[in-house]
């Protein structure tokens, strides 16, 4: 139950793009075509699912105040949390490199679709943001951290897919010249973010209410996903 709650919360309520504006740079730069957006989105899910749990372990056993106590009583009062930025970004950069090598070796077809995006991802704010939010929200277990990573990845994926589809269609509309391209994309994203704010009420009811709402949400999501998937096929 806890997992399900965190999962939907990280997809809809705390959506990376619409609630915290993470990964906006690549979101704006790579959303001109649906097919490339899908590639980058998938790569983000993949990398978040790996780096968030990894950084959780790092945070729990190395960086937190007192985390080094497993090395003996002498180390119990060490506080290395000021190193977390540098450790997180180093983990992310090396993991991305490693994932790239492994994927290239074992699955050339996946590499062809994800490959060019992987290096881009090391500097995507969504990835580092995922780890930093995991740290500041004090997620309790490794399992929850994984769920959080995958959930936020899927949220980012949905966002970039939606904006890419809209941008492909908007080419046929008569946008004022000065707003064309970047300007209108910003305003659409703003409107989408307002739409996503309505999910905020999803987890706020009493216990029974939340349970009810969640089951509804479970039924809704697959259809939404298939709709989006269908859209992509048509677009391609």
């Amino acid at each position: 139950m806890e997992h399900l709650e965190l999962f939907f919360k990280s997809i809809f309520i705390d959506n990376m793009v619409f609630a915290t504006f993470l990964g906006m740079c690549s979101y704006l730069a790579v959303s001109k075509k649906v097919s490339t957006a899908v590639g980058l989105g998938a790569a983000v899910i993949f990398v978040l699912a790996i780096t968030v749990p990894l950084n959780w372990l790092l945070d729990q056993y190395v960086l937190q105040p007192g985390a080094l106590s497993w090395m003996g009583a002498d180390y119990a009062d060490y506080d290395l949390s000021f190193l977390s930025f540098i450790m997180f970004i180093a983990t992310i950069a090396t993991m991305v490199q490693l994932v790239e090598i492994v994927v290239e070796k074992f699955s050339p077809s996946l590499y062809n679709s994800l490959g060019i995006f992987l290096p881009l991802i090391a500097v995507n704010c969504a990835i580092l943001g995922g780890s930093l939010f995991m740290q500041s929200r004090e997620i309790a277990t490794l399992g929850l951290a994984t769920t959080y990573g995958i959930g936020s990845g899927i949220g980012w994926f949905l966002a970039i897919l939606a904006i890419a589809a809209i941008r492909e269609k908007i080419r046929y509309s008569n946008v004022p010249p000065a707003l064309r391209g970047l300007g209108i994309t910003f305003i659409i994203t703003g409107l989408m973010a307002i739409g996503f704010m309505s999910f905020g009420g999803m987890l706020t009811g009493g216990d029974e209410d939340t349970a009810e709402e969640k089951t509804v949400e479970v039924q809704v999501t697959p259809t939404e996903n298939t709709e989006l998937a269908n859209n992509t096929k048509i677009e391609e």
Binding site: F18, T20, F21, L182, T185, F186, I187, G190, A193, I194
Partner: peptide, 12 residues
């Protein structure tokens, strides 16, 4: 937060 996007859109 959404209004930040719209304000930047207007600046552009």
């Amino acid at each position: 937060s959404p209004m930040a996007l719209i304000v930047v859109g207007i600046i552009i």
